[in-house]
Design a protein around this nucleic acid. Structure first.
Lengths: 135, 135
DNA sequence: TTTGACCCTCCAGCGACTGGACGTCAATTG
DNA sequence: CAATTGACGTCCAGTCGCTGGAGGGTCAAA
């Protein structure tokens, strides 16, 4: 099938699908006229990648997952490891964001938010670093 | 002062500081020999940007914050609005990450993680979409 | 004087696309 | 059968926020 239909079937934009071919992720056959010709299996792989991406896996991780997917002798432990690492990564990001959120929330709460210029947010951003010790 | 010292004082790499000049964020004077010459005020601004970036503000938002910082007639409400929007943005990201985390955790828990190939994670990634209705 | 640390500019690349220009091909309409 | 429209093709550039490197100039100390 043509790339347009493959795009519909995989919920991916044609541009992205061409990009995936560029980087060797899902490489379709070509027709005589140069058009990409996606098989049902290709579309399956595209959808696989789409799902993995939407779960937060990087394209490189998708490549690994695809390799495991196509490997009939794979150990589920390998897949589980990739997924667990991804969870750890997500946890780290959540922790970092929560930290930022906490700081910002505190600052916002202390800011009067009126038409005067005084603002603890600005103070925090422009504050001199505390000297390590008095001299 | 030279860029190296400004880098130390602002906790930013020299490359980043040059980049900030490129995009017109903090533009220092130049010496006769072409060297950048950062004033104490410049370094102050660099540190301001460094702090704002580490709080999750984009470079463009930093530009806005700098403008507000340098505006003596600013209303703290404007600053507060920027910060509140950033909090909302962070909240959205956290929610999204928690969703991903939930899905992945569930999958990982159901995966035996041994040397057999069967794996609910793979199943989920390769699953056919559920037909909307029987036909 | 020579070394080494610093500084300069410019170009390229990261990840994961996305937009646009420009040309070809296929299918439909008059 | 011509013309138009839409989908397809390639290639280049841009996004964001840097970062690395090449290939040079400058400066201060030994």
């Amino acid at each position: 099938m043509n790339i347009g239909l493959a795009a519909q079937e995989s919920s991916l934009p044609p541009k992205t699908i061409r990009y995936y071919e560029d980087i060797g992720l899902v490489v379709p056959a070509r027709r005589d006229n140069g058009y990409r010709d996606y098989s049902v299996d290709d579309v399956h792989l595209l959808r696989f990648v789409q799902r993995a991406r939407s779960l937060g896996f990087s394209v490189e991780q998708c490549r690994q997952l695809l390799a495991l997917y196509l490997d009939r002798t794979r150990a589920s432990a390998d897949v589980k490891r990739l997924a667990s690492e991804k969870i750890d990564e997500i946890d780290r990001k959540i922790r970092e964001l929560k930290g930022l959120r906490g700081t910002l929330t505190e600052l916002v709460e202390r800011c009067s938010g009126d038409d005067r210029p005084d603002c603890p947010i600005m103070d925090m951003l422009s504050e001199e670093p505390h000297p390590a010790a008095a001299s």
